[in-house]
């Protein structure tokens, strides 16, 4: 082999080393920085179970404050109708985390207003059926979806007794950092988990309700407002027959 060929190979090797360093180094540095960063929060603990009480007698007819606050807080108002989609069909396809429902008693005719959302069951059927474990329950009782491993099969939506989940039917142009969302995944109310993980103790819907129909807090803390209210007033779970031990309870249904 000639000398010039050898030096050519050496040059090549040198260049390759430089090139790969330039390519790999930022990743290594980033990785190191990330590893050294302080944890943003302390781990979630099962000493807390987040829950909610909704007083239907206070839930006012025609009021949409909680729904609008939820949409804003979780970026649902940023989900636009795709161009060319039919208005009527899109209304059925767009995501909803919380919705108002008005009931009429079949015998007495009594009307009741309430809001429905994920009931954050202790034994959530959506978690049972999820093939990948994307639908999961945190130790603090919050039921949510890991959007990294959701494959979009929608079996959780088939299993949820409360119709609480939404599938993202279209591309989402704008989204909030604390509530990422992508086409093809399922999502639902997560009790504003980004707030709770940053030390806040209220949800957007609760803050927005000027009628104080929503009380939120730690069900395991006997001194929390929600525990006190639950102790004071008779409350029910929706579909109590399924024995899911929901984290959301209702009074005056």
């Amino acid at each position: 082999m000639s000398k010039s060929n050898d030096s050519g190979r050496r040059d090549f090797l040198k260049k390759a080393v430089v090139a790969s360093s330039v390519t790999v180094a930022p990743g290594v540095i980033l990785h190191t920085l990330q590893a050294q960063a302080e944890p943003r929060t302390t781990p979630v603990t099962d000493k807390v179970r987040w829950g909610m009480l909704i007083d239907t007698s206070k839930c006012a007819e025609g009021c949409k404050d909680c729904v609008e606050a939820c949409n804003k807080e979780n970026g649902l108002d940023l989900v636009d109708k795709p161009e060319g989609a039919s208005e009527e069909l899109w209304e059925r396809q767009r995501p909803h985390w919380i919705r108002q429902v008005k009931l009429k008693d079949n015998m007495t005719g009594m009307l009741t207003n309430l809001v429905m959302m994920c009931q954050h069951c202790e034994h959530p059927p959506c978690v049972d059926v999820c093939p990948t474990g994307a639908s999961f329950k945190r130790v603090d009782g919050i039921v949510m979806v890991d959007r990294h491993i959701c494959i979009g099969c929608r079996y959780c939506m088939m299993a949820c007794p409360y119709k609480a989940r939404s599938f993202i039917h279209a591309d989402v142009a704008a989204k909030l950092t604390h509530t990422p969302r992508g086409k093809g995944c399922v999502e639902s109310c997560n009790f504003c988990v980004h707030r709770l993980d940053n030390g806040q103790t209220t949800t957007a819907c609760q803050d927005a309700c000027k009628h104080q129909a929503i009380v939120f807090g730690d069900l395991k803390d006997p001194e929390s407002p929600v525990s006190k209210a639950l102790k004071k007033y008779p409350s029910v779970q929706i579909r109590a027959d399924l024995k899911l031990n929901t984290g959301v309870r209702y009074t005056n249904i």
Partner: peptide
């Protein structure tokens, strides 16, 4: 979801 009741409006 609500036995004995009819849903008359929904969001």
């Amino acid at each position: 979801m609500f036995p004995g009741k009819t849903i008359v409006a929904s969001g």
